[in-house]
């Protein structure tokens, strides 16, 4: 196991017969992922792209030893899908579905945690380890096996930056797209120790966004626990300050959450902070070159 997925990962795709489920099952297989099963209630006994479809996650797990799920089911049913996979013994669930109400996600997160299941997402591109496995929807073309770990709150911006790393002749160990929703199953602080402890990762890229305080908390964690070099980028420096959660939200964040606050916290923690996305691969390449000389 590198970071959460490797060649022993066997994926069950929940919502496999839907359009996105079908398209990305194929892409995950092309990536080299063992897609063991699919689930769509009522479609058991059929196949999608050669993958057997079951009526329930329990049946899929019993028949195929699937150990990770990738959830594409529509938002109104996503909570149930997640609970079903937790109850079937799945310990890694990537929730791609967007627009899940946060009240549902609170239940999903705390239920999963109580049973020892890690959620990545929701509204996320998922996780990929080039040459090993991909659970989610990150385009295969951006990857190249290597030693850069990537953790991001964004979707397409992640692809942009990961692709940039590849174009600089480097590759990735594992890339996790955490998702940008208010409540996420795995935060920067949850993901950082996995990469710090991963022998296949030499340096880390963190892609954040304005809003929330996840980057500030990550900076605190980096300061105390991360010895590998970190390159960070925060999107939204030019955006007007948001008032999304109103006064009560301001009480919780107390001046944090802005681009300035995040950049300052990360720099204080020793991270190199890029001002623009295209600077990230340049910084990464410079660090990698120094590491290679050692």
């Amino acid at each position: 196991m590198t970071v959460l997925v490797d060649t022993s990962t066997r994926v069950v795709v929940q919502g496999i017969t839907g359009h996105q489920g079908t398209v990305h099952t194929r892409q995950m297989k092309l990536f080299g992922t063992a897609v063991a099963a699919g689930v769509t209630p009522g479609k058991g006994g059929t196949e999608v792209d050669g993958v057997p479809v079951f009526d329930s996650v329990r049946e899929a797990v019993d028949a195929t030893r699937a150990n990770a799920s990738c959830i594409f089911v529509p938002a109104p049913f996503a909570k149930d899908a997640l609970i079903e996979s937790v109850d079937a013994g799945i310990r890694l669930a990537v929730v791609v579905t967007e627009h899940i109400p946060f009240h549902d996600m609170l239940v999903m997160y705390h239920y999963a945690r109580s049973k020892g299941t890690r959620i990545i997402g929701p509204n996320c591109p998922g996780i990929a380890a080039p040459g090993k496995a991909k659970v989610g929807i990150i385009p295969n073309v951006v990857f190249h096996p290597g030693r850069v770990g990537v953790i991001s709150r964004s979707g397409t911006l992640t692809y942009e930056i990961v692709n940039g790393i590849k174009e600089h002749g480097l590759g990735q160990s594992t890339c996790i797209g955490l998702g940008g929703d208010p409540v996420v199953g795995t935060s920067f602080v949850d993901a950082l120790p996995l990469f710090q402890g991963d022998p296949e990762t030499d340096l880390l890229v963190m892609v954040g966004e304005i809003g929330g305080t996840a980057e500030e908390e990550a900076a605190e964690y980096i300061h105390g626990h991360v010895t590998k070099p970190v390159v960070a980028y925060i999107a939204g420096r030019s955006a007007p300050p948001g008032k999304r959660m109103g006064h009560a939200g301001a009480i919780i964040t107390r001046g944090r959450g802005t681009a300035e606050s995040k950049v300052a916290a990360l720099e204080k923690a020793g991270a190199q902070v890029a001002r623009f996305p295209y600077e990230v691969p340049e910084m990464v390449a410079a660090i990698a070159a120094r590491q290679a000389r050692r």
Partner: peptide, 24 residues
């Protein structure tokens, strides 16, 4: 908003990053 450049992008992060670069 006020301004004269239209930006069409996909994804919130990439859209924000695009604005950051344009402002620069």
């Amino acid at each position: 908003l006020d301004g004269n450049i239209g930006v069409i992008a996909n994804g919130a992060g990439l859209t924000m990053a695009t604005l950051d670069v344009l402002k620069e």
